[in-house]
């Protein structure tokens, strides 16, 4: 009575839920948790960087002191960035639910 699944069997994983290598959270792409997504409007951005420390997921892409965009692999859509942005350069929009629910 087993589930056919590519995931590992109980005898093949480390005991006690121990994670035996670093940086494994990179593989856990939490972007598909989003209900709403932040949309970046670069033409309004004044690059104050207030959104960057507020982001709980470190999902903002910054190059040479300029905000370049959002990493949707990890952004959970909490909306903190949109609420702190002083110039409304980030707005929250509904996700296409059907597209985003294809959990692997």
């Amino acid at each position: 009575m087993t589930i056919k699944n590519v995931k590992k069997r109980w005898k093949d994983i480390p005991i006690g839920g121990v994670i035996v290598e670093p940086k494994t959270s990179l593989r856990n792409k939490t972007g598909n948790w989003r209900v709403q997504k932040p949309v970046f409007h670069p033409e309004r951005c004044i690059h104050c960087m207030l959104c960057v420390p507020y982001c709980p997921e470190d999902a903002f892409i910054v190059e040479d002191g300029k905000l370049k965009g959002i990493n949707y692999d990890y952004c959970k859509g909490c909306g903190l960035c949109a609420s702190v942005c002083p110039v409304k350069a980030i707005t929250m929009e509904d996700e296409n639910v059907e597209q985003e629910n294809d959990e692997k």
């Binding site: 109980w10 006690g16 839920g17």
Partner: peptide, 11 residues
């Protein structure tokens, strides 16, 4: 994965 970790405890 939770069930598999708990099965290990039973083992």
């Amino acid at each position: 994965y939770f069930f598999e970790t708990k099965r290990q405890q039973q083992y």
